[in-house]
Nucleic acid binder design. Structure first.
Length: 124
RNA sequence: UGGGCAAGCCGGCUCAUCGUUCCUCUGUCAUUGGAUAGAGGGAAGGAAAGUCCGGGCAACACAGAGCACCGUACUUCCUAGCGGGAAGGUCCGGAUAUCGAUUUAUCGGUGGAUGGAACAGAUAGUGCCACAGAAAACAUACAGCCUAAGGAGCUUGCUCCCGGCAAUGGUGAAAAGGUGAGGUAAGAGCUCACCGUUCUCAUAGUGAUAUGAGGAGCAUGGUAAACCUUACGGGUUGAAAGACCAAAUAGAUCCUGUUUAGAGUUGCUCGCUCGUUUGGCAGGAUGGGUAGGUUGAUAAUGAUCCUGGCAGUGAUGUCCGGACCAGAUAAAUGAUGGGCAUCCGCCCUUGCUCCGCUGAAGCAUUGCGAUGCGAAGCAGCUGGCGGAUACAGAACCCGGCUUACAGGCUUGCGAUUUUU
């Protein structure tokens, strides 16, 4: 939990999951669960902060413009709600949000579902 | 005034809150890169798309020539170059117009707009041409036409034989130049005129071609987006190219120290090979090189963009002046909520239209045709409500082409309606 009085809503590059190895490891060994329309893959790793990646299937949304829009909405929802997630013994989560719906959902709906995902992850 | 076609251009604006990335400056920490805070500035397109052409750039390949393969194909010009563009030519096509004829809505002629064309070669060769038709290319001619010449029979002007013909008919996308006249037994470019074709020459043009003259009776149908021939062009790959730095682990080589007599081959033994300059361990170094990173890469000086001048029919060129304009990399340029703008639909008549249209009853004027006023309705503006705002996201960089696109603006063209 963020114990400071002011909550930070930033999203710097260090909180993004990059690198071929760590991504492959996450997809190979990570656990996952699903709340429509997002599949969440997660893995506890030692590090400095939680790291996420967002994926939108090219099969679900054909146009690059649409994929960009969904990716941006998920990123915004995570950015505004990531304070719900806490660290566990200096270990942090590597997360992958995979959007599966074939329609472009509104921001409020995505935010609502993403909060549920984070709450369920926190209970583990 | 409202719709259509063509060309060109634009393709939402703004506020609040919270964020992303790059650059510059300043502070702090590290002192090699960098991390962090603050301030200021930049941050998607006309197609960023499709990846269809052409280049730049890079690596590899490469004496020269030919064959093969692929591509292009009217001419001239533009361009760094192109399969792109401009102007022109030829053919196809036939709008508007116009003339004549009459069956007054048809036919025929003249003329040629917008538009379309892989538009080199079909007498270099090979192949193919469904169905129909006698025949689809060297005409063995189906139905037909003719009986002049030659022969036979006899009823002496008819039949048969031997023959001649390709005009007429039908089929077809296409039927062996067309129309007319002569000619003939019947016919036939057999002959002639005009048209067409083709050859030669002249003139005009840079040229494709055009115009004219003269010859050839014309033996040669179409198809090259069938093979092919001719001319010209083409090395391959593609930024995941390429260049550089390089942790950990394993292995290679070398050096030092220490220890050892064996080591390799094999499942084991024997055998074979090497060896006391060997092998093991520890430490160090070297180069290759993985993860990863830097660069390529774009804060740029160019086939760049903008405003003008000049040259050119034009594509375009040139000159003066000005500008520096995204740079991400599991991939930034946004998300949410308001307001405005534009367009569309519905509702309302509160208001406006004395300058929009229709205009009852009635009134006024009158040259008895009509004109003016006029409730009300329609339409528009205003107001209210609702909806829509497209196509689409840089991925090394340029030049084209193609395709997608709500709505708006400008110019031109011809038609239509209304008013004067």
């Amino acid at each position: 939990m963020d114990t400071k009085g002011q909550t930070k809503y930033t999203f710097p590059k260090s909180e993004r999951l990059t690198g071929k190895k760590s991504i492959e490891e996450l997809f190979a060994k990570g656990s996952s669960f699903f709340i429509h329309p997002i599949v969440l893959k997660y893995q506890l790793v030692e590090g400095a902060s939680h790291k996420i990646l967002i994926a939108v299937s090219k099969k679900a949304l054909k146009k690059a413009v649409d994929r960009n829009l969904v990716r941006r909405r998920i990123r915004e929802a995570y950015r505004l709600n990531k304070h719900q997630l806490s660290a566990k013994n200096n270990s942090f989560y590597n997360l992958a949000f995979i959007y599966t719906d074939q329609n472009i959902l509104a921001y409020k709906e995505i935010e609502n579902k993403l909060c549920k995902l984070l709450q369920r992850l926190e209970k583990n």
